[in-house]
């Protein structure tokens, strides 16, 4: 960790030019190393996805596909398994979770941040503690709950499941964003006699839009990553989410098809990467303004 000269200002500090250069070299070397570390596995995923089945299982792996092929990707589309449905299921359930969690969480976060009520402490603590519950412990009771509500094997049921971790998280995160909004901004509206929900809707919400988006993205990503709920709650293959389908399809009874698996992995990763880069800027803005970043 020799980022010693990180913030050496270009214009000043009477340091020897050579020192700065040495520091720079170390710094850039460290960044290059970090880039290699971050990207090499991704490269390997991509490279493997273009290899033929035989090449992907070679005992002496080839660093660059010798005989690049699109067969693995075509296989995904042409396979008898509905990859498009998996994709659709994932997007719909995760998006719904993110939206629902943020919508329900925002008023609660606002109340926890601003309002006075006696159960505020207990409610605030339990929201945070709920966030910590081991998901695996709640599987069986949740299964029975969804069964009785006839929500098993449905996307709605899955959303209910995802809400167990999405909602507390959203409340917690939204509260930190609202905390960061100076209360004075609301004073004028309050004096004008606006009801609280209108203040929240018209004054506070526009200010925390990046925060809303950030929270939504986090919830979305956690739902997207979740494996244990769809594995348990979805019984029909065609209703499965993408990550669960990945586990179920490529660890079947016959063989492990690394090329196909990496092609499917790439397809699973890409949408998230695109979405993620799309919201990245506003996320950084949200995080910077939120209390998560503010000290």
């Amino acid at each position: 960790m020799n980022g010693g000269k990180t913030s050496a200002p270009p214009q000043g500090v009477p340091a020897a030019g050579r020192g700065i250069n040495a520091g720079r070299i170390v710094k850039y070397a460290a960044i290059a190393l970090a880039l290699f570390w971050s990207l090499a596995p991704v490269y390997w995923m991509l490279a493997t996805s273009f290899k033929t089945e035989l090449e992907a299982t070679r005992i002496d792996p080839t660093l660059i596909p010798v005989d690049p092929t699109l067969a693995n990707y075509i296989g995904l589309g042409g396979q008898s398994l509905p990859f498009f449905s998996f994709f659709f299921n994932s997007v719909v359930s995760c998006l719904a979770t993110a939206v629902i969690a943020v919508v329900i969480a925002t008023p609660a976060a606002y109340a926890l941040s601003r309002a006075r009520f006696r159960l505020r402490g207990p409610v605030g603590y339990s929201v945070l503690l709920f966030r910590m519950l081991p998901l695996v412990v709640m599987l069986a009771p949740l299964y029975l709950l969804l069964l009785n509500a006839r929500l098993l094997d449905s996307l709605a049921g899955l959303v209910v499941g995802f809400t167990t971790f999405g909602l507390p998280f959203a409340v917690w995160m939204m509260k930190s964003f609202i905390d960061a909004v100076p209360i004075e901004i609301e004073e004028a509206a309050r004096i004008d006699g606006y009801p609280r929900w209108q203040i929240l809707l018209r004054v506070v919400t526009p200010l925390i839009l990046p925060g809303l988006l950030t929270t939504g993205t986090f919830v979305f990503m956690e739902a997207w990553n979740n494996l244990i709920y769809p594995l348990t709650f979805m019984t029909t293959m065609d209703k499965q989410t993408l990550p669960a389908a990945l586990v179920l399809t490529f660890t079947g009874q016959f063989k492990t098809d690394w090329g196909g698996m990496m092609a499917a992995s790439t397809v699973t990763t890409l949408p998230l990467m695109i979405a993620f880069f799309a919201v990245q800027r506003s996320m950084v803005r949200g995080l910077t303004s939120g209390a998560v970043a503010g000290a």
Binding site: P41, F250, Q280
Partner: peptide, 28 residues
């Protein structure tokens, strides 16, 4: 953006990918 890439990789894919890279014979 490049440094953030791994974060967009779903956990399941991380697991498969590393399992593949860690193989005793044939792992990169």
């Amino acid at each position: 953006a490049l440094l953030l890439t791994p974060w967009a990789v779903p956990f399941v894919v991380v697991a498969f990918l590393f399992r593949y890279m860690y193989l005793q014979n044939g792992g990169v």
